[in-house]
Each structure stands twice: as C-alpha cells, then as structure tokens.
C-alpha cells in the first residue's frame, strides 16, 4: 500500500514539533547541544522513513519514538565507558551502610527529615531545581537506568538489555542512585 503523504507534513515539523521534541530530549539529556542535535537527527531520520509511516499513531508520537531510540543510543554510548569501574568505584566512594555492623546506616548518612513544605509552591519549585541538579550528579550509567525506569517507565528487562546491565546490577543501580539522590537532597535542601 502506498503511504498517504497527507498524513505527514515535514514542511511543518519544525514549527509544530521542534520545541516539544527538544523539551523531551532535554529532560533526558542534560547537554543542550546534544539535545538539539538529536532533534535535528530525528527529523532527518524521519524523512528517510516517511514511507514506513503507517498512520497508526500521530505524527508527534511517531517522531517521539524515533527520538527515544536516539536517546537510548546516547545512553548506551555514555554508559559503555563506565560499566566496569563505575559500580565499585561509587560504592567505595559513599559508605551509606556499615557492613561490619550487619548493614546499619552509618552515622554520617543517617536520613534526616527534609525541610519540605508541599503546600508552598515556591518551596516546591526550589526543591525541584535541587532535585534536578542532584540527578545530574549521578554517574551516566546510573542516570540512564534511573531515567529510563522512573521517567519512561521502561521494563527492567528492556533497560538491562539496552544498557547491557545484569538484573542484579540493575537493582543495585536503582538503589544506589536513590541513596545518592536522597543524600544530595538532604545536603542541599536545608
């Protein structure tokens, strides 16, 4: 069946979807320039594939799916560099628990209450800013795993396969990432 050219309007892609796609990329990729390039690449890749568009989803959903794959490629490349050393290094770096005491919190990492006030919009905005900054401090592989799980709600199997992480390491990363994030919030949200 020949594709229906009226379903896609590449002439209007930039004005209709560029900001949306850029925002989608930016929350998943901190690097402004890289996010911009990914949007551009998405449009060009989409043009090559116009004949494969079946009209089952909206134009925007289709473009977003292409972008999503490109983002996973970036995660994979970034993560590959760190896979071997990252977990052990970071684990030694931060001793949240005292292994000799059977895994109790160490005194310096004891969770303490946040100064959080959910009813105050100004405070919650500030909280979100700090949360964002704290996420950017996570090692690339952790951030990739964390983002795919928390924001995109991907299945654990998909994440493990895409990022070449074993299933036991997957939970170690999810756990460690959260411990670091929580600690970072406690330190900066005072």
């Amino acid at each position: 069946m020949p594709p229906d050219p009226s379903l896609l309007k590449p002439q209007q892609w930039v004005s209709a979807h560029a900001d949306y796609l850029y925002a989608f990329a930016r929350v998943r990729i901190a690097d402004e320039e890289q996010a911009r390039d990914l949007v551009q690449e998405t449009f060009l890749a989409a043009l090559q594939r116009v004949d494969k568009f079946e009209g089952k989803s909206s134009e925007r959903t289709w473009l977003t799916a292409i972008l999503k794959n490109k983002i996973i490629d970036v995660y994979r490349k970034k993560s590959a560099v760190f896979v071997s050393s990252e977990i052990t290094d970071a684990a030694n770096d931060q001793n949240f628990f005292d292994e000799t005491e059977g895994g109790h919190w160490t005194a310096e990492h004891y969770p303490r209450p946040f100064r959080t006030d959910d009813t105050n919009p100004l405070e919650s905005k500030e909280f979100n800013q700090i949360l964002k900054a704290c996420m950017q401090k996570l090692p690339p592989l952790w951030l990739s795993v964390f983002t795919m799980k928390h924001i995109d709600d991907e299945s654990s199997e998909t994440i493990c396969a895409e990022l070449k992480v074993s299933s036991s390491n997957f939970w170690v990363i999810i756990h460690r990432a959260k411990l670091n994030l929580r600690a970072c919030l406690q330190k900066n949200w005072i």
Binding site: V27, N128, L131, I151
Partner: peptide
Amino acid sequence: KQSKLINDRILQLYN
C-alpha cells in the same frame, strides 16, 4: 517516605 516523595516529584517534574 522520602524515597516516595522523590519518585513523585520526578514524575511531576518530567511528565
């Protein structure tokens, strides 16, 4: 409690 708060805020932030 804090872990749940972080999860909620992340969803709120990004979606």
